[in-house]
């Protein structure tokens, strides 16, 4: 394992995390809500990928996008909309409840299907799991896909946000929701648009994740989402770009620290089992030094220190 290979793998992991972060950052921008159920949205999309079995790739990806968009819109309608004016902690706990509901719903279906083991295999785009070999370096095609999908979704989103009317309304809503409403921005439409786009992004993330894992189970997407949530806040959640960069950084760091630390050793911080501690410690230091986020604009102080 040479260091260049480790860097390449780290970039691939960072790209996957960045892709997840775009959807979370977009919803946060409009609703000021950290959606803990986003990982379960990815799981729903991954189950939709696994469900048809032998459909053509394009059709099953279409189904996954549809499933994730419908699930996110339903989530918005039954939980976010009625609680929009409630205390932020209420909305946050509502996302816990939805996450719990979806995760246990996924678990419950195995009781009915009476199939051994918890997990369904996914064969969509499995060719991309192959690696290209350049000298001694191996780069899997899915790494390119993750980077490409990340860039395309950020770019596409930038186009939507800057070039369309609904994008303008979204940006207005994320700057000052009340004033935007006073000026005639339809709150429901804007929020539904943002939530639907985040659903599409969840489906894209599900495709990328399931190419490398080749299967889906009730915990798919959960661990990644927790790290991404930490990453977007450490990067700076108030802007989409800084949030995405934060998630990229945490994915990159996770992969790099995991491969560069030795494999064995029980004393804290001496082996790769302590990778999470290293990452979380770094996050705490970043937040203490720059509470608004590592990549936030200088002078931007939306988060107050006491």
């Amino acid at each position: 394992m040479n260091h260049v290979q480790a860097l390449i793998d780290a970039i691939g992991e960072g790209a996957v995390f960045a892709l997840i972060a775009v959807g979370i950052g977009l919803v946060f921008g409009v609703l000021r809500l950290i959606n803990f159920a986003y990982g379960q949205l990815i799981m729903v999309a991954a189950y939709a990928l696994a469900f048809p079995g032998n459909w053509p790739d394009a059709a099953s990806i279409g189904l996954a996008v549809l499933a994730a968009v419908v699930a996110s819109l339903v989530m918005e309608r039954i939980a976010f909309r009625p609680l929009r004016t409630a205390d932020p902690s209420t909305m946050l706990v509502a996302t816990f409840a939805i996450a719990y509901l979806l995760q246990n719903g996924a678990l419950l279906q195995y009781t009915y299907r009476q199939q051994g083991g918890l997990g369904d295999s996914i064969g969509t785009l499995s060719g991309l799991n192959q690696a290209v070999t350049i000298g001694s370096l191996h780069i899997r095609w899915v790494t390119f896909l993750a980077i490409g999908a990340g860039l395309v979704s950020l770019g596409g989103l930038a186009l939507i946000l800057t070039r369309t009317s609904i994008g303008l309304q979204m940006r207005a809503a994320s700057m000052d929701f009340r004033t935007a409403r006073l000026l005639g921005v339809k709150a429901d439409t804007v929020i539904m648009a943002a939530v639907a786009i985040s659903g599409v992004l969840a489906a894209v993330a599900a495709v990328v994740l399931s190419i490398s894992s080749t299967s889906v189970n009730p915990t798919t997407g959960f661990q990644e989402t927790i790290f991404v949530l930490v990453g977007v806040v450490a990067g700076g959640i108030d802007r989409l770009v800084s949030a995405t960069l934060g998630a990229f950084a945490i994915g990159f760091a996770i992969e790099l620290v995991g491969t560069e630390l030795p494999n064995s050793g029980a004393t804290p911080f001496t082996s790769n089992v302590y990778m999470p501690s290293v990452i979380y410690l770094a996050v705490i230091v970043v937040l203490l030094l720059r509470p608004a986020g590592l990549f936030a604009r200088r002078g931007q102080r939306t988060v107050e220190r006491v």
């Binding site: 949530l229 959640i237 999470p276 501690s277 990452i279 705490i284 937040l287 509470p291 988060v303 220190r305």
Partner: peptide, 20 residues
């Protein structure tokens, strides 16, 4: 010293370290 989301995520990081 932290408030709001930064405090939430920093305390989540403490939980992560403790668990690890």
């Amino acid at each position: 010293r932290l408030s709001g989301i930064a405090a939430g995520i920093a305390t989540l990081a403490v939980l992560g370290i403790t668990y690890n």
